[in-house]
């Protein structure tokens, strides 16, 4: 499976320059003004990983991968892990940069705020991975884009509707407040695992 991860990372190595440039832009904007674009690096990294699907399908890599040992399984596993690795890596880099920026600007460090902020970003972007990949494996990247758009749009409309017109009982969630980062991590881990199992099932059955 490591071989497949190396393959996925090799595919995006030409994008590393872009990510490096983004770090500089981020540092510059952070130091010069108030603008916070800390989400941009993890977000770009998931976008770059998604673009590898289109290179894969252009050269029909998936059919070739099937002929490699455990290829049907390991190619999916590697895609999830490579994406996960790159998102986490970019989140860590952004977090460290954020420390640097606040330290230079205020000579103090506000650990919890920055960490929570970046954790939220990473989780939000991992949700994109978890939601989108099974669609891509099922329908291909082009159709999956439309599919995911409809799903997200639907959730927003539906959520807005609920919040506007339905009275949500005011349960005390106090006891949760201190634990929400952990709860979120558990939920996103479950989502990712479930998403991986679904994608794997799709790919194990697929004919190319």
């Amino acid at each position: 499976m490591i071989g497949f991860i190396i393959k996925d990372l090799a595919m995006i190595k030409s994008n590393f320059k872009l990510l490096g440039l983004l770090i500089i832009v981020y540092l510059f904007l952070g130091l010069s003004g108030e603008m916070d674009i800390s989400f941009i690096l993890p977000f770009m990294s998931v976008m770059i990983m998604i673009s590898t699907f289109s290179y894969d399908s252009y050269n029909k890599w998936d059919a070739y991968a099937v002929t490699l040992p455990n290829g049907r399984k390991n190619s999916v596993k590697a895609k999830y892990l490579a994406t996960f690795i790159i998102i986490i890596l970019m989140t860590v880099i952004t977090t460290l940069s954020a420390f640097l920026i606040t330290y230079i600007k205020t000579k103090t460090l506000n650990y919890p705020d920055i960490i929570l902020n970046m954790l939220g970003t990473a989780i939000g972007i991992l949700v994109v991975e978890a939601l989108m990949y099974p669609f891509i494996y099922k329908f291909g990247l082009e159709k999956a884009r439309i599919g995911i758009f409809i799903v997200v749009f639907g959730i927003v409309i539906f959520g807005g509707f609920i919040l506007n017109y339905v009275d949500i009982p005011d349960i005390s969630l106090n006891f949760l407040e201190n634990y929400w980062p952990i709860i979120l991590i558990v939920i996103i881990s479950l989502m990712l695992y479930l998403s991986y199992r679904i994608s794997l099932r799709i790919n194990l059955k697929k004919e190319y």
């Binding site: 393959k7 090799a10 590898t52 050269n59 070739y64």
Partner: peptide
């Protein structure tokens, strides 16, 4: 059907 064409022979040698 093969490795994606943005890869190089050296990339193949690594994976």
């Amino acid at each position: 059907s093969f490795f994606p064409e943005i890869m190089t022979p050296a990339d193949i040698a690594k994976s």
